[in-house]
Amino acid sequence: MADHPYRDLPPEALWRRAVAERSPLHLEHLYRPRFPLGRETRIAAAGSCFAQHIGRQFKERGYAFLDAEPAPPLLEAGERGRFGYDMYSARYGNLYSARQLLQLVQRAQGTFTPLDEAWEEGGRWFDPFRPTIEPDGFASLEELRAVREHHLGAVRSLLEQADVFVFTFGLTEAWIDTRDGAVLPLCPGTAHGTFDPEQHAFHNFSWPEVMGDFEEFMRLAREVNPTMRFLVTVSPVPLTATASGQHVLTASVASKSILRAVCAELVARHEHVDYFPSYELVTSHPMRAMFFDPNLRTVAPRGVAHVMSTFFEAHEGTATAAPTPASTGRPAQVPVPHEDDVVCDEAILDTFGA
């Protein structure tokens, strides 16, 4: 028989041996880390709401997870998520798109200043780019500005100190201020602000846009920190609602497919980028939707546990030292209570359905 490239493929390259004949709970070699993450590795994280699980697991397992904006000591643990603390490495809330992440860094570096500075409602002030971090709003515009400047300083600190930046891609759909292209985390009017059809436009990011945005983010980050590496994932949580005009199922599949394809290309182009398949571990058909709650959208605790155990088992043996405190972005407190209480701003859209 003639020789050919398929004769000596490893088991994980063959569907029958790698998937069909195995339990979905024990798929071998699904994730092979491109670079190790030791307990001394300074890690920063951002992204959609599913990414909160990743940060919490890093903290609980004793990794040097950076928190450049820790909660005030007097704020009760159960209230921290409601005010945007203990979610990520800074108090930026959920960053659903690569454009949001890029613009956040541009704002922190002073190269982009959105025209929409604040929303006023009943004498209280809300940040359009973090509309839910202060549930009752700020007492004054001056207070909002001061807190924002502190926040952007924390973002600059993360870029300077992080060895690895973890980003979970969530959505391609977004609402944009047509005057300057600023991306908002939520459609104005859903939580705070006022929707203006002349000012606010729906936009569904294409593959080239998402790819370009994340590559530009990496370029800016590595200008500050040339050795920074990146770990990307795709959230397995589907869209709560779509403004695309499509059925929400096809819109969700299209969005996630674009994001997954971007991750594949990022890994192919850049040696300093790794991909972890949290999306496949939850949503692929061998999993039979067993990791979703009955609403078929939110990931059940057993699904989170499966994803996280797969990740950390792949990194066994890479942790060699105790966490090293950073001068400004220091390892967050552990343990973190209420680990399954995830703050997902997008979930508010579900309340508008009939």
Rank of each mutant, 00 (worst) to 15 (best):
A201H: 12
N204R: 15
F205G: 01
T227G: 09
E215N: 10
F202G: 11
E216H: 10
Q199H: 09
S206Q: 09
P226K: 15
E216R: 12
Q199A: 13
D213T: 00
V237C: 00
H203R: 14
F214H: 04
V210A: 08
S235A: 12
F205W: 11
N225S: 14
P226M: 12
S206K: 04
H203K: 13
L231D: 13
S206D: 05
G212H: 02
Q199G: 09
F214A: 01
P238L: 11
G212W: 05
P208G: 10
F230L: 01
P208Q: 06
L231Y: 10
N204P: 00
T233D: 03
G193I: 00
P236F: 12
A241K: 13
M218N: 03
H200S: 06
R229H: 09
T227C: 06
A221H: 05
V237L: 01
N225P: 02
F217L: 13
P226A: 13
F230K: 05
P208R: 06
L239S: 04
V232N: 05
S244F: 08
P236A: 08
P226Q: 09
V234C: 13
F217P: 00
L231I: 12
A221E: 02
E216C: 04
M228Q: 13
A243M: 11
R222C: 11
R222Q: 15
M211I: 10
Q199P: 00
W207N: 03
M228V: 14
V237W: 02
V232E: 12
P236K: 10
S235E: 11
A201L: 11
F202H: 15
N204Y: 04
S244Q: 06
P208K: 01
E215D: 08
E216N: 06
P236G: 15
S244G: 00
S235D: 05
T227Q: 09
E209H: 05
E198R: 14
A201R: 14
L239W: 03
E216F: 02
S235P: 02
N225A: 12
P226V: 09
A243E: 10
V234D: 01
M218Q: 14
M218I: 11
T242Q: 14
A201F: 05
F217Y: 14
H203T: 08
M211W: 09
S206Y: 07
D213F: 00
H203D: 06
V210F: 03
N225K: 08
T233E: 10
T233W: 03
V210N: 02
E198D: 15
P226W: 13
H203Y: 03
D213P: 00
V210R: 00
V234W: 05
E198S: 11
E209M: 01
F230V: 14
P197L: 13
F230D: 07
F202N: 07
N225W: 06
S235L: 01
D196I: 07
G193F: 07
V234K: 07
H192R: 15
